[in-house]
Amino acid sequence: MLNRDYLLPGIAAGLLAVIFPMYWISVFGETLDGLGEALKLDLQSLNFSDLVFVLIGALEIYVYLSLRKALKDMFDVEGVRILLCVLAVLVLAFHATVLCDVYLAVAGDKASNDVVESISIIAMVVSAGSLGLYALVGLITAALLLTKRHGMSSLLTVFSILLLLMCILQLTVIFAYLNVFLFPAALLILMVFFIKKPEQIEVI
């Protein structure tokens, strides 16, 4: 049976699991030089992909805040709940770089090469900084959740393990691209967690 209290977060997680890999695979498909070059290339235009980028950010923030509420309903993990808010803020910072696209699109040819270069650098610094901090905060979040594994569902345990792996891969930079596949898997786990009736959740 469905848990109607968290049906919308479940749908959001499932939708994000589909959109996220499609978007990033298409972005990486435009360049083979890594995330930095992919983001730099994306800054040079304002199109439908930027709208998808914003949608991904909005869905991810909603999922984290919904998970925060769900954890409050289950057991006392105030530290984890605070860290989930921090993750949401970092996601907001990363996706807010779309404003650089908007500015460059509005400015058009009026923007000098120096201005364009400066905005690109700012966008890259914010992107890299938010992704690096996300990995560190996510690592701590996953570790704290795993310390509570005896009081939470097996689904959350699996999600925590996947989050831990994702953050480690993110910190390596070289293998960060694997998160294009791991993150959707984690989201699908969260989707099931959200929509499952509480009494159906196994406790290990």
Rank of each mutant, 00 (worst) to 15 (best):
L43R: 11
V54K: 02
Y134M: 15
I204L: 12
Y103D: 07
I174N: 12
F181Y: 09
L39D: 13
K72I: 03
L165P: 07
M74F: 15
V52E: 08
V192S: 07
M191P: 01
G29S: 01
T97L: 01
G129I: 06
D114A: 15
L145E: 03
A176W: 10
S127A: 15
A105I: 10
V158P: 06
I168G: 05
G79W: 00
V77G: 00
C100L: 15
K72A: 10
T157F: 03
E199R: 06
C167G: 11
I25F: 12
L83D: 02
G151V: 09
N3Q: 03
I168F: 07
C167L: 09
N113Y: 14
P9D: 01
L90F: 09
V86E: 02
A176V: 12
A142H: 06
A111I: 09
T147S: 09
S127M: 12
I56S: 04
L51W: 09
F183G: 04
E78M: 03
L71W: 00
M152H: 05
C100A: 14
V102G: 04
L83S: 03
F193M: 11
G14S: 09
N47K: 04
L104W: 09
V203C: 06
A38E: 06
F53Q: 04
I195W: 07
V115A: 14
Q170G: 12
L87H: 03
S45P: 04
I161P: 00
L39G: 12
I82P: 02
M22N: 10
T172C: 02
G151N: 10
F193Q: 10
A143T: 08
A96T: 07
F20M: 11
T157R: 07
V173I: 13
V115T: 12
E117N: 07
E117M: 08
N113Q: 13
A107E: 08
A176T: 13
D101W: 07
F183E: 05
T31Q: 02
I119W: 05
I204Y: 15
D114V: 14
V18T: 05
M124T: 14
S154C: 07
G79H: 00
I11W: 02
G34W: 05
M191V: 01
F28V: 08
A107P: 09
L2H: 14
D114N: 11
G57L: 01
L87M: 07
Y64N: 03
F194E: 01
V115K: 11
A123C: 15
E37V: 08
A143G: 06
A88K: 01
L155I: 04
V77R: 00
D76M: 05
R68C: 00
A123Y: 13
Q200A: 13
A176I: 14
V80A: 01
I82F: 08
G14E: 05
S153N: 02
D42L: 15
S66V: 00
F48V: 15
L41E: 14
V89D: 00
M166V: 13
G138V: 05
L178T: 02
A88R: 00
I121W: 15
V173S: 09
I61M: 08
T147H: 07
K40C: 12
A186D: 04
D73G: 02
L46R: 08
N47H: 07
V77W: 00
L67I: 03
